[in-house]
Design a protein around this nucleic acid. Sequence first.
DNA 1: CGAGGGTTTGAAGTGCATCAAATAGTGTGG
DNA 2: CCACACTATTTGATGCACTTCAAACCCTCG
Lengths: 250, 250
Amino acid sequence: MQDCIYTAAESVERSGLKGLPLFKACQDSFFQKMAKRALTQKHSKGKILFLHGDEARYFYFIQKGLVRLFRETLDGSQVTVDILPAGQVLALRTIFEDDLYPYSAEIVENAEITSYPLSYLKDEIQTNNTLALNMLSSMSRCKRRKEQEIEHREIQNAPQRIGCFLLRLIPQNKEGPVTIHLPYDKTLVAARLGMQPETFSRALSKLKRETGIKIKGATIELDTVQQLVQFSCAACSSEFPCKDLQQREF
Amino acid sequence: MQDCIYTAAESVERSGLKGLPLFKACQDSFFQKMAKRALTQKHSKGKILFLHGDEARYFYFIQKGLVRLFRETLDGSQVTVDILPAGQVLALRTIFEDDLYPYSAEIVENAEITSYPLSYLKDEIQTNNTLALNMLSSMSRCKRRKEQEIEHREIQNAPQRIGCFLLRLIPQNKEGPVTIHLPYDKTLVAARLGMQPETFSRALSKLKRETGIKIKGATIELDTVQQLVQFSCAACSSEFPCKDLQQREF
DNA sequence: CGAGGGTTTGAAGTGCATCAAATAGTGTGG
DNA sequence: CCACACTATTTGATGCACTTCAAACCCTCG
């Protein structure tokens, strides 16, 4: 579905590319240049934004909606790399990957997405050392997340992984009772956590049984965060308020 | 065991810090400054170089030996993050991690290791944009490896993961019969691949049965690379010569 | 109201972990 | 150079967690 193109330029202002911490070292001239080539499009669920291995000319900013990043083998089995909500950038790191997208991207919830030329970004990091340094910290954090994901898959069981996922949805320093809303379909959460939907369903009820959390559809209520921390964080090498690991990028 | 300190300065020259692609954009003055604070030590097997969460002042270069990077939970279970051979740098990314080591490091084969002050490196990347860019590509590659590792653990079974590991030990573009030597103990390879030693043993014999490779202790012979490629790379989203993913750093 | 996707539940199978024990291999001191 | 001690590796038996296949249920939305 080739959904309606509805704007160009100026979108950078609205977009929030400018609002991203990653780009805070950039001058207005950079944003203006970007804006000239920016293009915002609406996409509906199911649309493939690009495929792993495609030649890349753009990176993207998600204004609205949800994007699933994944990789696929020849025989058709897929691995979900990440699921990005509005406010995230994607395909940035393509500039370090010979201009080939390192994963495929699929719209999983009607979205509005702005594209920007990678070439401009490349030019900018050549000269803007602070941007390069910001990208380094950002990528380092992202890499740490990946490492933690490997660890989790190795030592946490399915209910613990779900508990850990829920904990990351809670704003920092929250005390007492909390209400959590799953940010997307259970099937997607399952994919994100590397398990089957059936396993997710069973694991969630086990989590409920073991920790006493309350579940109503996509809404989950905790009397106290401790409930979950005790259950999930036991099988993890980081201790609880997993500092800023909810941020993603690249 | 606090093993003999046997040299300082000048070690940079011998060391090969200078020889690393990562640092090819650095001036001699940088290496000389580094050399003044460099310290090379011998460590024997079992020595803990540093612990996850320790305050970090140095990064390291492995002159000889093997280092295992790992993380540990409170209840004592460990996850092996990587196993680094001579020629590798480690703990570089600590500068993006609030100066706390992001993992623990243990000597697993008598080693000779040079330490350098992280602060000098920090200073250098502040001003040397090319170094920063090189670090970016390097870290991007490293991150890709991590993502691939997640994928492998999700869709490859134990024998396939071993096959994939073996393939990465073969020099690029090698044709016909190949002899592979495991770079370290089977127990370590197992840990590296996230499986138990028992599983590794059984999976390796299964791999042998299914592909017809020949195994004599730590030596493995293939009539042709295809044997393994067909078996392992079927369950992977990248196609065979997994371009430069044998390199690591950070 | 009916269609279709999301979600749950059941039953059965598989792969890896775990525990236990045997065997092979390696380095050490005598 | 040999015997011992210790570690690495293999093998067997069993259990558990997750997957897979199948089917029912539920919910939303046209």
